[in-house]
């Protein structure tokens, strides 16, 4: 019972809004969100289902970035590289070794975990900006590395690799797009649940303590070097799994899909959703997936704008949002909610 008494002291149990405690609201939202997510593929067209699968994939990648940048305070402008490693791992396993698609996810994740850990080791010596610079270099160099002649047999060079679209197992009455959506949703739920537990554990507190005050954290006996490197690894794991899922749902990988602008896309999603937030990653995924459609739509409304040029405007919209968010809500959408909430709750 002592545990219960302790838990009751948390603000989420004490504060009320419209008769329910915040904890109850949280569960309500979660249930609503899950119900919507489960019902979605039956109410929209196959293409929209595909787009929502894309949302989930981006959300997982953005979650990886949030864990690193938001919770641990290490910058990365190079997560497109880990996404690429994950995507290529999955593609090579499926294309050359005929490995079933679901097995490629753990492998891609583990490879990225170690790639991230190894990149995180020298990165330990790089504070803030220098880390941003090193990861920027990684992102810019990635497409060239993927085109490298010596590995062309495996990677398919500039052409990339084309994969087969997986069918639903056990003769489930689902279309391929619907199955891929549910598959991604399942993986995503698992990963989000793990991230939630990680952040709310002893390890998670250590990770955040390093962000807030590295010296104090070290004084408390936290091995900052190990924690930072492994956080880099875990972050790369998430982004790598997202990359593998991305390859599976698009059935195609090519070097020029993994440019620096992909890393910027993750950053946009992360910043818009809220960089120190786990559910924020989902907002971020929705934002980066659907903004191109909306901005193109708007741009073509302007008289005299060609379709080609309208496509280019997407990045201007992203850029404006990045700057705007930093001005008005540096903690993103999640932070905005967190800030507005106290005005409406009471004890």
């Amino acid at each position: 019972m002592a545990n219960d008494a302790q838990a009751r002291r948390e603000p989420a149990d004490v504060l009320h809004f419209a008769g329910l405690t915040l904890r109850q609201w949280r569960w309500l939202w979660l249930a609503l969100g899950l119900a919507t997510a489960a019902a979605l593929p039956w109410t929209v067209s196959n293409f929209t289902v595909f787009q929502f699968t894309q949302v989930l994939v981006y959300a997982i990648a953005i979650l990886g970035l949030n864990l690193l940048t938001g919770f641990n305070g290490q910058f990365s402008l190079g997560h497109s590289a880990f996404y690429a490693i994950g995507a290529y791992t999955a593609a090579i396993l499926m294309f050359h070794l005929k490995v079933p698609y679901f097995w490629t996810l753990p492998l891609a994740g583990v490879i990225c975990l170690f790639a991230g850990f190894l990149f995180g080791l020298p990165a330990l010596r790089l504070e803030g900006l220098y880390l941003a610079l090193a990861t920027f270099a990684l992102a810019v160099a990635t497409p060239q590395l993927l085109k490298y002649k010596a590995v062309e047999h495996w990677t398919g060079g500039v052409q990339g690799l084309t994969l087969k679209k997986p069918s639903p197992p056990f003769d489930l009455p689902l279309s391929k797009d619907q199955w891929l959506y549910y598959f991604t949703l399942l993986v995503g739920l698992l990963l989000f649940w793990c991230a939630w537990n990680l952040v709310h554990s002893r390890t998670g507190r250590a990770i955040q303590a390093i962000r807030d005050n590295p010296i104090a954290a070290r004084t408390m006996g936290i091995n900052t070097a190990m924690y930072k490197s492994w956080t880099f690894g875990v972050s790369a794991f998430y982004t790598g799994v997202a990359g593998a899922l991305g390859a599976i749902i698009i059935q195609f990988v090519a070097p020029d899909s993994f440019t620096f602008f992909l890393a910027v896309l993750f950053l946009v999603g992360s910043v818009v959703g809220g960089i120190v937030s786990i559910p924020g990653a989902i907002f971020g995924g929705i934002f980066v997936t659907f903004i191109p459609n909306i901005s193109e739509e708007l741009a073509t409304q302007i008289p005299g704008v060609a379709e080609e040029a309208a496509k280019g405007l997407t990045w201007t919209v992203y850029g404006l949002f990045l700057i705007l968010i930093i001005y008005v809500a540096p903690a993103g959408l999640a932070g905005l909610l967190r800030m507005l909430l106290p005005r409406f709750v009471r004890r």
Binding site: T69, F75, L77, G128, L129, A132, F261, V264, L267, V271, I275, G312, L313, T314, W315, T316, Y318, G319, L320, F321, L322, I323, I325, I326, P330
Partner: peptide, 19 residues
Amino acid sequence: APALSHVIVFIGLLAIFNS
């Protein structure tokens, strides 16, 4: 603002100029 905000604004400008 903290360093991260600056990096983000730089990246925002990069995207705007490019497109």
